[in-house]
Amino acid sequence: MAAVAAVKPYEFEAADRLENFHGNQLLYIGWDQHLMFCAPFCFPLPPAMPFRAFVEQVLPGAFGYHPEFKQIDWSKAEWLASGQPFKPDWDKSLTDNGLAHKAVLRLRTPGLTGIKGSAT
C-alpha cells in the first residue's frame, strides 16, 4: 500500500480502533436477497456475547419487519464471514467463533427470495 504524499510524516490512529467502543466490538450483518433493508447493519456488541444471543436477541429487532423473517429455518441458514463459508457455534461467543472487531457476516436463507421474489 502506498503512503500519503505529504510535507511531513503522516501517521494517524484509526478512528474506529477497538478501544474507542467502550468494551464493545463492531459486527456487521447483511441478509442476502433481502434488500428491503437497504444496507447491512452495524452493531456494537460485547465480544463475549454468545452467537445464539446475537441471532435470537439482536437480529429480530433489525430484520423483524420483513414478513419472511419469521419463516427462516435457522437449521438451514447459511453464513458467510468476509465472503467465506462460516459455520458458527451458537453457544460460543463471538470471539470464540473467530469474529473479531469489524467482522462482516452474510446470512443466506435458501428458498426465501424476498417480496414477490424481487430480492426485496
Binding site: C42, Y65, A119
Partner: peptide, 29 residues
C-alpha cells in the same frame, strides 16, 4: 422506519446500499 444503524463505506461514507456490478440482487461487499 428502519431504526437499526447501517454499515457504511469507509471511503464514500454512503451506507452499503449498492449492488454487485451486474447483479442488482446482491449487496456489493
Amino acid at each position: 422506519y428502519n431504526m437499526t444503524l447501517p454499515m457504511l463505506c469507509q471511503t464514500c461514507q454512503i451506507p452499503m446500499i449498492f449492488t454487485e456490478p451486474g447483479d442488482p440482487t446482491q449487496t456489493c461487499y
